[in-house]
Design a protein around this nucleic acid. Structure first.
Lengths: 330, 330
DNA sequence: GACTTCCATGCAACCGGTTGCATGTCAAGT
DNA sequence: ACTTGACATGCAACCGGTTGCATGGAAGTC
């Protein structure tokens, strides 16, 4: 049977070392203020007792928790894990901890999480937030906030410009002679979705190509698969999907309907999260989620240190990664 | 420019409502102790000032943080997101928050995270921990701990018994006439890896089948792919991989080498995280990670409430899910 | 040897809540 | 009318640290 040791406090260490509580505190936070002998004596006593500073108490008196929150809509979406990892790594470099929240694409849950985190983190990164501008502004009034893939004036933000990559995608299809294409859209309250749709329309118009939009509701394999009938009904010869997951679903749906890719139909994903693991390997718009995670946290820590709110707008460009799901129009 | 509002404290609310601080506190935590009129008066004042209780201060005096930690080795591994989601959902039902940590498969990082979390959570779930038994025991002495896929006496644990499914996998291959198979192993410090290897050997021995082990170092697409030459060199006609990701890598490697699956070679994954999205759809051992996450958190919350440490050993059975990567031995 | 300086350390207030106990009030019981 | 008790509220200590200021002793200066 394992038994729990109750916490050793600073007072016990102080008694053991024969000093005041304040000295123990200083031994840990500002050892330069104490004589070296006192520090070692305190440290020895602390070690012997197994003392470990109480994070909560420290946070209460200093107002510094040493953690930042990161909220994402869906951990299961392969777009986010690299972003999370990079954020964690960057936070780690400054001895900060990341608290991760998953909202299941649900604004109410997101709101709740932000409120819940607010008291225990020094700042927050909201990735692909599904909240309204108003709610985000309100939260930004409470604590330092950095946004990823959400463009709101006055709030520091890191934007992955899939526009550049999507433009290349449309040009790529145009070169292959496609004249009628489909955009398989994602979540309607997603900033990226809006951005991609806009970029596709603009590029297509410029090149004299017709674009139709087929909604896939969620960014997922199944909604992509379910969208296939609608896609084929448009008579298009190629599609660009909101993301790789959706594209993968479309790929599966097409194969079920005996539509060969790229022979009969060309397909392009977005975010390049699947690499070459689909069959055939998916042509996709590159992803900068790792940089986005890193930059967002770095920006946030910067704000915390300088206690200033900057109106930063950091844009990361993307490009088309050509693989095997695109070819000449039938 | 957004400006930050500094926190409203309980004293300000007390002054505004003309009551003592303790009454404000009670209005929020035990309103039944106060007269209804006082409660509404306090609530009105709190509302007007925009008061929100300070989580840290509360945690300091009550010792209850209202969060539990969840530490996983690799968020990017599709085995974990469903587990994380389920854990979060279960925690939510009791108004607990999940703090997620990612260790990048690194025991040192894991140790650090546990220490870091220890002060801010009431309990911890370690999923597929890469720590030594000693370290885990040491941590269990500090705070309530529940393990997933790690079997240590005296510490509550939830185990996904892939043994049952793996046994079915071997029997399935035996029925198809395979006499020589390979186990593509995973991380050496993974409990699941050990469990699976043992189960395969046992089942194979019983059925008179030869098993060779080829290591894939990490549980990943690339290590699976890189293991292919070694796999083929054994002369085996089928393989069981540590997990689906590894299997997917093997699948890709085989296809590169023009070895057709299942025609020339049969392949079985583990954890069934890819569903039917590979091509051909992967036969795999089912996964109970959702239940594992839910049960682990529920167990932990239970421990927190009853302040007792139970020696629970919760086992979840698995089964073979047959798809299209297995057939008669060549 | 007296006076200033500086450094190491202690004292006590503070962070923002919670909670056991004391106090005061009012209504019911006898 | 006096006791009793229930109930609403306030007081003050406490959770475990941090930090501005006071203090005392040793070293430095003339």
């Amino acid at each position: 049977m394992i038994k729990r040791t109750k916490g050793v406090t600073i007072s016990q260490v102080a008694d053991a070392a024969g000093v005041a509580r304040s000295s123990v505190s200083r031994a840990f936070t500002r050892p330069d203020m104490l004589s070296p002998e006192t520090v070692t004596r305190i440290m020895k006593a602390a070690e012997a007792l197994g003392y470990v500073p109480n994070h909560t108490a420290r946070a209460l008196s200093t107002g510094r928790h040493g953690n930042v929150g990161l909220i994402v809509p869906d951990i299961a979406n392969p777009f986010f894990p690299p972003l999370i990892q990079a954020a964690q790594l960057e936070a780690d470099r400054s001895d900060f901890c990341i608290f991760l929240g998953n909202t299941e694409e649900n604004p109410k849950q997101e709101d709740k999480l932000v409120g819940r985190f607010a008291g225990q983190v020094e700042g927050l990164v909201l990735a692909s937030s599904r909240l309204s501008d108003e709610r985000i502004r309100a939260h930004a009034g409470q604590l330092p906030l950095v946004l990823i893939n959400r463009d709101i004036d006055g709030i520091p933000r890191v934007l992955i410009d899939s526009g550049s990559g999507v433009r290349e995608a449309v040009e790529h299809l145009a070169q292959f002679g496609h004249r009628r294409i489909v955009y398989v859209s994602g979540p309607s309250n997603s900033w990226s979705n809006k951005q991609r749709r806009t970029a596709i329309k603009a590029a297509a118009t410029r090149l004299g190509i017709v674009v139709e939009t087929v909604p896939a509701v969620l960014a997922s394999y199944n909604s992509g698969r379910n969208a296939v009938s609608a896609i084929l009904a448009t008579g298009a010869t190629a599609a660009v999907a909101f993301d790789d997951l959706t594209a993968q679903g479309v790929l599966a749906g097409l194969s079920e309907k005996r539509v060969s890719v790229p022979g009969d139909f060309s397909l392009i994903g977005c975010d390049d999260v699947l690499g070459a693991v689909t069959y055939p390997a998916l042509t996709s718009v590159s992803n900068r989620s790792t940089e986005a995670g890193r930059v967002a946290v770095s920006l946030l820590l910067d704000m915390l240190q300088s206690r200033a709110i900057r109106d930063v707008r950091y844009v990361l460009e993307t490009h088309l990664v050509v693989r095997n799901t695109t070819t000449t129009a039938r």
